[in-house]
């Protein structure tokens, strides 16, 4: 375990852009409680001021400093150096799923484009805006999302198959779930979720849930219930007959 007894840590950081680059080694001193982001900052301050890296809050609240540390997608600000063995070289790479702009900074603009496709809450007409904490809890879980895009990064539909044209990814299924399950929402997005946002591509491997730094149960609480609602509407024979008879949607 790396401890702060005048120890040093060696990082291997990707330096380059989308055309390529190389892993470059830097050694900095370790202070107690240091996280990977601190070590990256120390590299900037002491060795490479021009090295690019995004960060903001340094407390796991903003989701800016996502990277792949020893191959694991993480927030660098919440990854303590004492999680690693003394003498171990820690590799830090940018997220693989998005094009690299420079060093640890990726072009994540595709995610912002997906978000702007999703409409707002459609509150029930004339609502008194009263609902219980229990009802709030269900959507508050989804609204904890800090948009670090680690779930998007590990989703194999996006990472390995690059189906960005067909599938919005777990982050935005969570956002859709937060609207669909809002206690006062009157909207209906199920057809869009099926046809435009491509929920069918998700085959529930739960990789997204595993990496979520906010511990949102993405697959079980957001994606599966949405899939169930779609199944009920489109593939349940009883419901199908009922709709035919009543003319309801």
């Amino acid at each position: 375990m790396i401890e702060a007894t005048n120890q040093q840590v060696t990082l291997e950081i990707f330096r380059g852009d989308d055309d390529g680059g190389e892993m470059t080694e830097y050694t900095v001193e370790v202070q107690e409680g240091m996280v990977v982001l601190d070590a990256v900052h120390a590299v900037q301050a002491q060795h490479a001021p021009e090295m690019a890296c995004r960060w903001n809050c340094k407390a796991g609240k903003c989701g800016s400093c996502s990277a792949e540390v020893n191959g694991h997608p993480k927030l660098m600000c919440m990854d303590r150096l004492d999680n690693y063995e003394a003498g171990e070289t820690i590799s830090v790479r940018p997220l693989k799923t998005f094009p690299v702009i420079k060093d640890l900074v990726c072009d994540v603009s595709w995610n912002f484009e997906q978000n702007s496709r999703i409409g707002q809450l459609q509150p029930r007409q004339g609502t008194d805006w009263l609902f219980t904490q229990r009802e709030a809890d269900r959507v508050q879980e989804f609204r904890k999302c800090i948009e670090c895009f680690l779930c998007q990064n590990v989703c194999h539909v996006l990472r390995d198959h690059d189906r960005k044209d067909d599938f919005v990814g777990p982050r935005f299924l969570v956002r859709l779930a937060s609207l669909e399950m809002h206690p006062l929402d009157d909207g209906d997005r199920l057809d869009e979720i099926k046809d435009e946002y491509g929920i069918g591509y998700c085959n529930i491997t739960k990789c997204c849930t595993e990496v979520c730094p906010e511990s949102i149960t993405i697959t079980d609480n957001a994606i599966i219930p949405l899939k169930e609602r779609i199944v009920d509407r489109h593939y349940d024979p009883v419901a199908w007959i009922w709709r035919k008879l009543t003319g309801q949607k």
Partner: peptide, 12 residues
């Protein structure tokens, strides 16, 4: 003084 170029350069 700044090293590197003007692309995403936190030191600059």
């Amino acid at each position: 003084k700044i090293g590197g170029n003007i692309g995403f350069n936190p030191g600059w």
